[in-house]
């Protein structure tokens, strides 16, 4: 049995841990709100962009002249997986669930004989994946120490991806991130961004308003499409990064909530053990005194 002093020390250390996890939970909660607002603020732009693009794309019938970003390179042999994760851990299954999804898909692609490359945005995903795919991994893009992810970062990632695409480095690009459903549920998602895939529902939604009247374009439809597609990549990446940021905080909040509760339970059970052994010791001492007195 542990001595009283040992028990006291353990209780104190669990209490200190609990304080930390509780503080982290509260910090995550306030950051979550901000991240959620940022993710929501970015939505109108992305939605609008998606609607306009899908509409423009629907109008292009001639696949030959369509931009490669839309129509693809005509092959799907080489895949680039962009895996967006957090810079920090201690957020439950957040990083590992994104990495797991990416890993499964990568394995499947490799076993199908495709060539796979992985670009990690965020240190944690890179740490996990380098164990399995050291040959396929590219140097990660990390934003350590950066407070808020913004359009600049998304553009930076997009620029790297696009220049590689232009240099004919890959055929298909898929973006992995965690969609923010609500505080307790974040869904790891894979989204194909090159060649662009559009929601058919979005297109028809917008199509109704557009087909009624002849649209004028300045410059030509094709030129607009070509200018918008690369921009759309940046917007999609931005949306993924922002959703990821919100998901990360949500995951951390619930993980730390759990940890705080566990620490509380541990403190309770340790306190009971401590009190019991203290009582046992007192009783033992009394018995010793009394039996000593009786012996006289």
């Amino acid at each position: 049995m542990a001595s009283l002093k040992e028990l006291r020390n353990r209780i104190a250390s669990v209490q200190a841990t609990q304080k930390i996890t509780r503080a982290m939970q509260m910090v995550a909660a306030s950051k979550l709100r901000r991240a959620q607002e940022a993710a929501e603020a970015a939505r109108p732009y992305a939605d609008r962009m998606g609607a306009v693009l899908s509409n423009l794309a629907a109008g292009i019938t001639d696949a030959e002249s369509a931009p490669k970003l839309l129509a693809g390179t005509g092959s799907e042999q080489r895949h680039l997986l962009i895996v967006a994760t957090a810079e920090r851990g201690l957020c439950g299954g957040f990083n590992s669930s994104i990495a797991r999804l990416a890993r499964q898909d990568a394995k499947k692609l490799i076993s199908d004989g495709k060539k796979v490359e992985i670009l990690c945005v965020g240190r944690k995903g890179h740490d996990v994946l380098k164990r399995y795919f050291s040959a396929e991994l590219r140097a990660p893009i990390t934003y350590q120490g950066l407070k808020n992810i913004g359009y600049d970062q998304a553009q930076e990632v997009a620029a790297q991806v696009l220049s590689d695409f232009d240099a004919d480095g890959f055929d298909v690009c898929t973006l992995y991130y965690s969609r923010f459903e609500n505080v307790i549920s974040q869904i790891p998602t894979g989204l194909q961004i090159i060649p662009a895939s559009f929601d058919a529902a979005e297109a028809s939604d917008m199509g109704d308003t557009l087909q009624g009247a002849a649209y004028d374009y300045e410059p030509e439809e094709n030129e607009i499409l070509e200018a918008l597609l690369p921009r759309n990549i940046a917007v999609q990446i931005l949306r993924a990064l922002l959703e990821n940021a919100a998901s990360e905080q949500g995951a951390r909040m619930s993980a730390m909530d759990n940890a705080t509760r566990n620490a509380g339970e541990m403190i309770d059970s340790l306190s009971i053990t401590y009190n019991r052994s203290r009582q046992a010791q007192i009783t033992k001492e009394l018995i010793e005194i009394i039996s000593g007195a009786e012996a006289l």
Binding site: V52, L210, A213, D216, E218, P219, A227
Partner: peptide, 19 residues
């Protein structure tokens, strides 16, 4: 500020898309 020249938009403008 349109890419091919500035333009003004008033209510009930015809459908139009520009860079």
């Amino acid at each position: 500020p349109g890419a091919e020249g500035d333009f003004g938009v008033l209510p009930k403008h015809a459908p139009f898309m520009a860079m």
